[in-house]
């Protein structure tokens, strides 16, 4: 078999091209540290996704200084949670799975992109250096409303980020002269202590208390107001911590029965 000299030259060039391509990809893996989605995430019975300790209530968790884990359920035809909020300057590990069909999980305009396959957990670690807002899109056909399956990923400036949750409780009605107790529970999902101020406005009375919530802990603050200071009638109350706010209404006077059973629970978290 005689191969023409020119074609021999091309054969060598083609081999160089192929080896060069493989070398570039290898450089990306080793030199730049780019990792492939692989079998590290493990498997999961799709029927048990809703009972799984993380995927039943998916969301953002802090696991170390500037290190976060995000659990995401990709399901027909939505991402849970969405928007996902993480701080800039952090290393975020996503765990994504599906309870139903195959989906995609693509962070628009980035190289964060994976298949989501029922039975498997896709695990990816990403460093977010800068704040920004990204779209999330399912890029694998998953059914008739596939095109509606989108979401949002918000990378907030580090100093604005928290994993604080606030809930508040107050009676709906109290008799005139009794005390009104407003109880605020502040939960700190981050690992560092949270120094903050809880403010309660009950009617025209404003109360403040500084609290320190331990990392991965919660604190309860109770504000007490004498209802006779407010007078009979309906009074709005609001509890605020940083950007979080809970509110309700308390009625002073009128019916005095079963006052202790009627309470307003409010809850908010940062989702």
């Amino acid at each position: 078999m005689n191969i023409h000299t020119y074609e021999k030259a091309w054969l060598i060039a083609a081999m160089l091209l192929i080896v060069g391509f493989i070398a570039t990809i290898t450089y990306g893996s080793i030199g730049l540290g780019i990792a492939m989605v692989d079998d590290e995430g493990g498997s999961i019975d799709p029927n048990e996704v809703f009972d799984h300790e993380e995927f039943s209530d998916p969301g953002v968790q802090q696991v170390g200084e500037d290190e976060y884990e995000v659990y995401v359920r990709a399901q027909t035809f939505t991402f849970v949670p969405s928007p996902i909020e993480v701080p800039a300057g952090s290393e975020v590990t996503f765990h994504v799975t599906s309870p139903d069909v195959i989906h995609g999980f693509s962070v628009v305009g980035t190289n964060v992109n994976t298949m989501v396959i029922p039975g498997e957990i896709s695990t990816m670690t990403v460093e977010f250096d800068e704040p920004g807002e990204y779209g999330l899109v399912c890029n694998e056909y998953c059914g008739p409303q596939h095109h509606e399956m989108s979401g949002q990923l918000i990378v907030t400036p580090e100093e604005e980020f928290d994993l604080t949750e606030l809930s508040a409780e107050a009676p709906d009605e109290v008799a005139t002269g009794e005390e009104i107790e407003v109880t605020a529970t502040v939960t700190n999902g981050q690992l560092e202590d949270l120094d903050t101020t809880v403010t309660a406005e009950i009617g025209d009375v404003t109360l403040e208390e500084d609290v320190t919530v331990a990392g991965d802990g919660s604190e309860e603050v109770t504000f007490v107001v004498d209802s006779s200071d407010l007078g009979e009638g309906d009074h709005d109350w609001t509890v605020t911590v940083d950007d979080y706010e809970e509110s309700g209404q308390v009625t002073v006077g009128t019916d005095e029965s079963d006052e202790n059973d009627d309470t307003t629970d409010t809850e908010d978290d940062n989702e």
Binding site: L32, G33, I34, A35, M36, V37, E40, G41, G42, E54, Q61, V63, G64, E67, E69, E91, T93, H95, V107, G109, T110, N111, V112, T114, I121, T123, M124, T125, V126, E127, F128, D129
Partner: peptide, 15 residues
Amino acid sequence: NDPTVVSSILMGVGL
């Protein structure tokens, strides 16, 4: 087109 998926010491933790 970063961010890009990188290898991490966190791999496997938390599951």
